[in-house]
């Protein structure tokens, strides 16, 4: 074996030993990590927070918190179902919207930002409807939507890029993850303080029927 090979192999060996040693040291001296516990009970105060788009009767006993992704087709159908429920049980339901844009939908985050920016000018639900009607809308189309809703365009652009809007969306995502939401739409249905997690709009409709029949 030539001296150059010996030298390079020793170097490589040293790097490996050093690396493994540091990794082991780091591993065994790291602070104990508490697994982020999934909340054992579904808390109203976690899910119903101020500053989220909502409609229906703000004092209703039945509260629906919706986690939705605006590029997701079942969320569009979910929206129709929820609209029908709100109409049918007018004054008896409070609906709160929270974002859960999924990674698999490349435009979901953009849509969430546009809707959130529209929310800051009081046009969240209108923007949501426009997006749901055209779930492949481009940036340019979103601008046209905003213009057609009579939004202040300068403010709209500013809000879309703002830290506040980003944080609001990320906060929604964090809450969803903490509760183990893994698909959209997912709903949290509260009757008073008692809540349950429901996946899919058809299950939600069935559950609400049950609650309303019971009342």
């Amino acid at each position: 074996m030539k001296s150059e090979t010996r030298f390079l192999l020793i170097l490589l060996g040293l790097v490996l030993i050093l690396g493994a040693g540091l990794a082991a040291l780091n591993y065994y001296t790291r602070p104990p990590q508490l697994p982020e516990a999934k909340p054992t009970e579904i808390k109203l105060s976690d899910l119903v927070i101020p500053g989220r788009p909502e409609k229906g009767n703000p004092n209703a006993k039945v509260v629906v918190v919706e986690f939705s992704d605006m590029q997701c087709p079942s969320c569009r159908r979910g929206n129709e179902t929820v609209e029908q429920l709100l109409l049918r049980y007018e004054g008896k339901i409070r609906l709160i919207f929270r974002h859960y844009p999924l990674d698999i939908h490349p435009k979901a985050m953009l849509f969430a930002r546009a809707a959130e920016a529209a929310y800051r000018q009081g046009k969240f639900w209108e923007m949501q409807d426009l997006i749901f009607n055209e779930q492949d809308a481009s940036d340019k189309r979103l601008e046209e939507f905003a213009r057609s809703l009579g939004l202040n365009m300068e403010q709209f652009h500013k809000d879309m890029k703002s830290r506040e809007v980003q944080e609001a969306i990320l906060n929604d995502i964090a809450t969803a993850r903490r509760y183990g939401v893994n698909s959209t739409p997912t709903y949290f249905l509260f009757v008073g303080e008692k809540g349950q997690m429901i996946q899919g709009h058809l299950s939600l409709a069935a559950e609400i029927e049950k609650v309303m029949q019971g009342n």
């Binding site: 074996m1 030539k2 150059e4 090979t5 390079l8 192999l9 170097l11 490589l12 490996l16």
Partner: peptide, 13 residues
């Protein structure tokens, strides 16, 4: 990368 470095180290011999 490990195998690449190994190949480079062996090469002179």
């Amino acid at each position: 990368y490990l195998s690449f470095a190994f190949l480079c180290a062996l090469r002179p011999s």
